[in-house]
Simulated scan of single mutants.
Amino acid sequence: MTTILRTTNLTKKYGSKTALDNLTLGLQKGEVLGVLGPNGSGKTTFLKIIAGMHKKTSGEITICGEEPGIKTKGMVSYLPDRNFLYKWMKISDAKDFYRDFFPDFNEQSFVKMMEVMNLDINQKISSLSKGMQEKLNVALCFSREAKLYVLDEPIGGVDPLARDMILDSIIDRAYDKKTIIITTQLVRDIENIFDRCVFLSDGATILSGNAEDIRNERGMSIEETFKEIYRGQI
């Protein structure tokens, strides 16, 4: 199988604070990795290093054999945990922005996703609810023909209907054998598509491996494992 992501003792420090501590893992083409943990556990730091927004302090990370940089930014489609579009934009402006900025943007796929998400391409970003904004952001992310899709809390804080639509889009991409990394605290809604999981606490790995192996070894679901590990922290 093709290795899409590999890290070895990946570490990120901000002054005296260690945000990510010796993370080692591998992700193969077509796998879905769930990165789990409470706020402040290092999840977003990890994703920003993959996206090329933060530089590692030490250790190794490669994406399709390349260290994060200009080349890998063209391989990774990153969805941050907060809205990143200008409020003056219409959805059509956001589409044009992505089309101009990312050569792998598939405008036809985006238009189809707008129909599925029940969004009007002429709507202003400023008029969208949080759920609608998240649906738009997910549609933009998945309309790229990327090697790796990286989603930071894509279903956090949105209404149940929007959550279902976003989950359906993620599940469709998982079944289409896209390589995906997802951070979430809403484990129950999405754990069935995880091929691998890594549980983080204060930047350190406390459990990592194949999702089905974790279920079998512990005799419980990923959500139940999550609750057991982080009881009192969330």
Rank of each mutant, 00 (worst) to 15 (best):
A146M: 09
P154E: 05
S129K: 05
R144L: 10
N122D: 13
M114H: 03
K135D: 05
S109Q: 07
F142P: 07
S109Y: 08
Q123R: 15
Q133S: 13
M113G: 03
P154S: 06
D159N: 10
V111S: 13
K135L: 03
Y175L: 14
V116G: 00
E134N: 14
S143Y: 05
M114F: 00
V138K: 04
V138R: 02
K124R: 13
S143C: 10
G157R: 05
N106D: 15
E134K: 15
N122M: 10
I180Q: 04
D152M: 03
A139D: 00
D120C: 08
S129H: 08
V138M: 05
K124C: 07
G131P: 02
E115K: 15
D172L: 13
N118F: 12
S143P: 09
K124G: 12
I121W: 09
K112P: 10
Q123D: 15
A162F: 05
M165F: 10
F110G: 04
E145D: 15
L119D: 08
S169C: 14
I171G: 02
S127D: 15
L140N: 03
D176R: 13
D172S: 14
V150E: 06
N137L: 11
Y149D: 01
S126L: 12
E134W: 10
L119R: 09
K178W: 08
C141T: 14
V138S: 04
I171E: 01
K130Q: 12
